[in-house]
């Protein structure tokens, strides 16, 4: 199930070519790849576009994966509790976690609900850009604290934003005084979220 020989190696500096090589070396898993971090199957990699970083995944050994599994169900389990369940020392748990976080493999996060921040208005905003580099516009938008996510898109709209505001009285000011005034923003289309039925982002850019 796990790659037995794959000692955890954080080859973040490996280029695209050697990245592919290291992926094929550890290929062969048939499980859904998102279930087991160490089980990277080799097919279907046509799209490799990521934020300017290499896409070569560091490999995890079964101990790393077991630690991740425990934290998935209880992110607040202490190192001691994890260590006891896996019959290892708390120091090992601590070292493994630190290594994985440093390699940007995983992070344990406290996810708070929009409501806990008093965000009652969530808007999916499409932005069309003209006369300026889309990435530059996106980086300007990313600086706004109300903007939770910024994605450069290849579709009808150049940039998609997820915006969180406290109430409707803030909408007009935010859209016209903060978004529209950014150089290069030509058109905005807003969709107001009235119900968020599913929201599962466990795989993210770290």
């Amino acid at each position: 199930m796990f790659d037995a020989t794959g000692l955890f190696c954080a080859d973040c500096t490996t280029g695209m070519i050697s990245g592919r090589a290291s992926r094929s070396r550890i290929s062969g898993g048939s499980d859904p790849v998102h279930d087991r971090g160490g089980d990277i199957s080799g097919e279907g990699r046509e799209m490799q576009i990521r934020s300017g970083r290499t896409t070569a995944p560091p490999s995890l050994d079964s101990l790393d994966s077991s630690i991740i599994d425990i934290l998935r169900t209880n992110g607040r389990a202490t190192n001691q509790e994890i260590a006891e369940r896996l019959s290892i020392t708390a120091a090992t748990v601590s070292a493994r976690l630190q290594k994985m976080e440093e390699a940007r493999v995983m992070r344990v996060v406290a996810v708070t609900d929009f409501a806990a921040h008093g965000y009652n208005v969530i808007i999916a905003l499409g932005v069309k850009v003209q006369g300026r580099d889309i990435g530059d516009v996106g980086r300007d938008l990313a600086e706004l604290p109300q903007v939770l996510s910024v994605n450069v898109m290849n579709g009808d709209y150049d940039i998609e934003l997820l915006v969180a505001l406290h109430d409707f009285s803030e909408v007009q000011n935010f859209l016209f005084q903060h978004i529209a005034v950014i150089d290069g923003v030509m058109h905005i289309a807003s969709g107001i979220a009235v119900d968020i039925v599913k929201f599962e982002f466990n795989v993210v850019p770290l």
């Binding site: 998102h34 971090g37 990521r50 896409t55 070569a56 995944p57 560091p58 991740i68 934290l71 998935r72 209880n74 992110g75 607040r76 940007r104 493999v105 995983m106 992070r107 344990v108 996060v109 406290a110 996810v111 982002f201 466990n202 795989v203 993210v204 850019p205 770290l206």
Partner: peptide, 8 residues
């Protein structure tokens, strides 16, 4: 509390 993993 949950684990998030990188795209890679």
């Amino acid at each position: 509390f949950t684990v998030i993993t990188d795209f890679r």
